[in-house]
Simulated scan of single mutants.
Amino acid sequence: MTSFASQVFARVDRFCRPLPMVLNTVLVFSITGEVSYLVLLEAPLDADQKKTVWSAWWKAAHLLAQYFMLGNICWNALLFLWTSPSIKGVFLGGEGMGQGWRYCYTCETHTPPRCSHCYDCNVCVLRRDHHCVFFGQCVGFRNYRYFLSCLLFMWSGLLYATLMNAEVFLVILKEGVTVHSVLLLLIPWLMLVSGQVSARAFAFAFIADTCVVGFLLVSAFFFFHLVLMLRGQTTREWYSTRRPYSLGLRGNLRHALGLRWYLCWLCPLIPSPLPGDGMNFEVTGPLESTR
């Protein structure tokens, strides 16, 4: 009985693991499609401006901006998934072992400082930050640049989409702050089921709400990791208030984003080699926790 239950749980777990990434992908492309529709068919609202040269350039600029952000999100996400942050293929041990090295009984090997075992990935990860549920992979030494860049363009894209959908909120609230308008903004699916709104109005209201909620969530993640990067910390080290590896603002940027930290965020295809090997770190403060 226990074996059957464990098999069922394992199958459900395998089925559910990719769901956050699938949902993320659907939402990103849905929001992009909706904003493209707003740009091409709904804006500008003045009918006299719809066929002007200014309107054509305005639409081209907006489409270029949003597909530049979409391309960066997709490329950074793919490179994040393709770049393994684990110890697989890395030579560990030898004379380089020193303070901070530990033995992982699961992987049966010595691991360097800032490396820890991930039970979701079932492997030790170099400079492990955390396991990202939305990507189904750990954030570590080699793929941190792509993770942070993806967050940057998701944040800017959701900010852009929220501003573009401001007209949707204005149209909904045009009738005033009534029970109907408030419910349409907060729970549009309930209004759709009750038959009080059309499918088109529901789609616009739902995506507009998704943009606002997504922007708030991504903002929290992005600015939290931005602070961690500038402080030279991982999420695990932030919990213990340790900053033993901080190299100053520029040094922390170089170690997180690579030697071309000032350019690499523009495009994931810009090469930006990391200055370290993920195993040896310069210690600039006490290794003991202050809590």
Rank of each mutant, 00 (worst) to 15 (best):
T162V: 05
T178L: 03
R14Y: 09
L185D: 04
S289E: 09
M97Q: 14
C132F: 11
L79T: 14
T290H: 09
Y119H: 15
G96D: 15
Y105M: 02
P44F: 01
S181V: 05
T234I: 01
L183M: 14
I87H: 09
L228E: 12
A65R: 13
T210D: 07
R243I: 06
V171L: 05
F221Y: 13
D209I: 02
A61N: 03
L266K: 04
G285P: 00
L41F: 15
Y144D: 09
N252T: 05
E282M: 05
T25P: 00
C264W: 01
P18T: 10
V218F: 01
G98E: 14
V125S: 01
F135V: 11
L126E: 09
L81P: 07
G214P: 01
S36H: 04
R260C: 05
C107K: 01
M164Q: 05
E34V: 02
R243W: 12
C150R: 10
S84I: 08
F15Y: 11
C264H: 00
S181E: 10
T52G: 14
L184K: 13
D277L: 07
L184S: 14
S272R: 07
T235Q: 13
F4M: 07
G195V: 03
D120L: 14
L173R: 08
L173P: 08
M279N: 09
W155N: 13
G140E: 04
K174V: 00
L159D: 02
G248L: 06
T290E: 15
C115M: 06
T111C: 09
V227Y: 15
M21A: 14
L170K: 12
Q196W: 08
V35R: 01
R11C: 14
E175T: 08
C121N: 03
Q66N: 12
S30E: 09
F224G: 08
G71K: 07
A5P: 00
F221T: 09
P85L: 07
T234R: 11
